[in-house]
């Protein structure tokens, strides 16, 4: 009897314990300031036209990049497109992370992100829900579910709208799957993203970004208002026809890079390509 009572008390204490974490989950919440030391020229000033090296693109992606005309960004319907989930962390990305809890159980149902550029907001569902069916709508940030793997948050995102691998016309398809790992080391946060996209990539495309905890950060509002600044006939879509982009080789020439290297592909990711 005494043993049973002791066991009951122990169980009660275990259940009633106010804090505790058997899954080694770490708190990611807070204000995070980006660090751009990694890939700075591409992330902030932006990539050049025809700067595709180091990306495992296929022929279809390359031709989209070669056809791309930056003037497309002045078409009204393109002006206020936000960076999609897989690119949002690359640009100006002052970030706030918070979590939503179920009041009764105090379980985390979702982890949410706000990123400064275009006020992007994402929800990472932590309650085990399934991804929507294939006939459901796609969004810039897709549908994300997360799990804890030790103290690292691993996120899988589907249902993305068609987006971009780089801001120079290299596309990422709506069929792509984005896998991410959020890893906190004290006041530093590392984010690793892996894009798998059979439509435009021959190998997974892996990138990483870093932030520093910044409790005093205040993310300002982001407004985007569409304005017609170029008077074009309706139905004009700026682009270059095959072989007619006059700027395509400019980047390679300026930097003394062989054209075939600048044009990208999986082989350009590896050191032996240089040889």
């Amino acid at each position: 009897m005494l043993g049973q009572k002791l066991l009951k008390n122990l169980l009660f204490m275990l259940i009633a314990t106010p804090v505790g974490n058997i899954n080694a989950e770490i708190d990611l919440t807070g204000e995070w300031a980006p660090r751009y030391h990694e890939d700075l020229p591409e992330r902030i000033p932006g990539p050049s036209i025809g700067e595709f090296h180091g990306i495992p693109i296929n022929e279809a992606a390359r031709i989209r990049g070669e056809s791309w005309d930056p003037s497309i960004l002045s078409v009204p319907e393109h002006q206020c497109k936000p960076h999609p989930a897989d690119y949002a962390t690359r640009g100006p990305s002052h970030m706030r992370i918070w979590k939503t809890l179920d009041r009764a159980s105090q379980q985390v149902t979702a982890i949410r992100l706000h990123i400064s550029w275009s006020a992007s907001e994402r929800t990472i569902w932590m309650d085990g829900r399934r991804h929507p069916p294939d006939y459901g709508a796609h969004s810039w940030h897709g549908f994300s579910t997360g799990i804890w793997e030790g103290d690292q948050l691993t996120v899988t995102t589907t249902h993305l709208k068609q987006g971009w691998l780089r801001r120079n016309g290299l596309p990422r398809s709506e069929k792509a799957i984005l896998r991410e790992h959020f890893i906190r080391h004290g006041n530093y946060l590392t984010h690793i993203s892996i894009i798998e996209d059979d439509a435009f990539l021959t190998e997974p495309f892996i990138r990483s970004q870093n932030w520093v905890l910044e409790p005093f950060q205040q993310i300002g509002p982001y407004l985007c208002e569409i304005a017609v600044e170029v008077d074009r006939p309706q139905g004009t879509v700026p682009h270059y026809l095959f072989g007619q982009n006059p700027f395509l080789n400019e980047y390679a020439t300026r930097h003394g890079i062989p054209i075939e290297a600048a044009m990208g592909g999986a082989e350009t990711m590896y050191p032996d390509f240089i040889e």
């Binding site: 006939y135 459901g136 709508a137 796609h138 709208k161 068609q162 004009t236 879509v237 682009h239």
Partner: peptide, 21 residues
């Protein structure tokens, strides 16, 4: 699948680009 304007814009762009080519 269910879409919104941005999806139609992508599609319109595609049709015009292929038409032009």
């Amino acid at each position: 699948r269910l879409c919104d304007e941005a999806d139609v814009v992508e599609y319109r762009d595609m049709v015009i680009i292929i038409r032009d080519r």
